[in-house]
Simulated scan of single mutants.
Amino acid sequence: MTDTINHHIPEAILAAYAAGTLPHVFEVVVATHVSMCESCRAGLDAHETAGGVVLEGTGAAALSDDLRADVLAMLDMELPADPAKSVRKGIYPGPVMEALKNREPRWKSLGMGVRQSILEAGPEGSLRLLYIPAGRAVPDHGHNGLEMTLVLQGSFSDETGAFGVGDLEVADEDLEHTPVAGEGAPCICLAATDAPLKFQTFMPRLLQPLFRI
């Protein structure tokens, strides 16, 4: 699928993922893209290898009792699955199926044919699937933080370009856009945010608390 992917994970985000410092909602998006993209998978391997070299070159140091306990607890934690080996179901790669707990999405209408299925919502951010009918536009909006959107089916376009299956858009406070689903199959995206969106029109702002966007 990599041959058709034109929008990849920025290096800084890939490095943060390799270091384990991304919020979980963004980790899921990165893991999903990596499971679809050979070039980003190779980039991730490079970051992880570089991190291992740094650790090997670090001299031994005495640990306090509290730090030793924290390290031992981390070693006991189950490591995340390799995204490349995760099991896909239909259009949903393994990391998405894990977030869905191996169930079908529970879609809820946002109006005008657009639907969402919230996979996670908490202090660090939200993770959701979005279903947008062909030709339908998402209301014009900006961002109070970071938004990562990965296409799983169909396509969309906005002021920054066109995005097809496997493409990742990373938006921040500097981007205001109006995504429009492409022709053909409905656009289904995996989207993660760490802050509410900034809608420019009255009705989306009014409904925003209800839809938790």
Rank of each mutant, 00 (worst) to 15 (best):
A46S: 15
T21Q: 05
G43L: 09
S39E: 13
V34F: 06
L44I: 08
T32H: 05
V54Q: 09
H47Q: 15
V28D: 00
V30A: 08
T49Y: 13
A50N: 10
V28K: 00
L44K: 00
L55K: 09
V54L: 14
G59V: 03
V25L: 05
E38W: 05
T32K: 04
E56I: 05
E38R: 13
G51N: 11
E48H: 06
E48V: 15
V30T: 09
T58Q: 09
M36T: 01
A31L: 00
V29R: 05
G59P: 02
E56L: 13
E48M: 13
L22W: 01
L44T: 06
H47S: 03
P23C: 07
E27Q: 14
S39D: 13
D45C: 05
G57F: 05
H33V: 03
T49V: 12
A42R: 14
E48C: 12
H24S: 09
E27W: 01
V30H: 00
T49D: 12
A42W: 02
S35I: 08
D45E: 14
A50W: 02
E27T: 14
L55N: 10
T21H: 08
S39P: 03
V25C: 14
E27S: 15
P23K: 07
H24D: 13
P23W: 09
E48R: 15
C37G: 08
F26M: 11
T58G: 09
T32E: 09
V53S: 04
G52Y: 01
H47R: 13
T49A: 15
F26Q: 00
V34E: 05
S35Q: 03
C37V: 09
G57N: 15
E38S: 14
P23Y: 04
D45R: 13
G59Y: 00
G57A: 04
P23A: 04
T58R: 12
F26D: 02
T21I: 11
V25D: 02
G51I: 09
G52F: 00
V34A: 07
V54N: 08
V34D: 04
A46Q: 15
G52N: 12
G59C: 00
A50V: 01
V34K: 00
P23R: 04
G52P: 05
T58S: 13
L55E: 13
A46Y: 10
H47C: 13
G51Q: 11
M36A: 09
D45N: 10
L55I: 10
A50P: 01
T32V: 11
H24G: 00
T58F: 11
V29C: 10
T21E: 13
R41A: 15
D45I: 10
T21S: 15
V28Q: 03
L44A: 06
G59A: 13
D45T: 10
A42K: 14
T49L: 15
L55D: 09
E38F: 02
G51L: 13
V34T: 07
E56F: 05
C40S: 14
H47M: 11
L44Y: 06
V34S: 01
M36G: 02
G57Y: 06
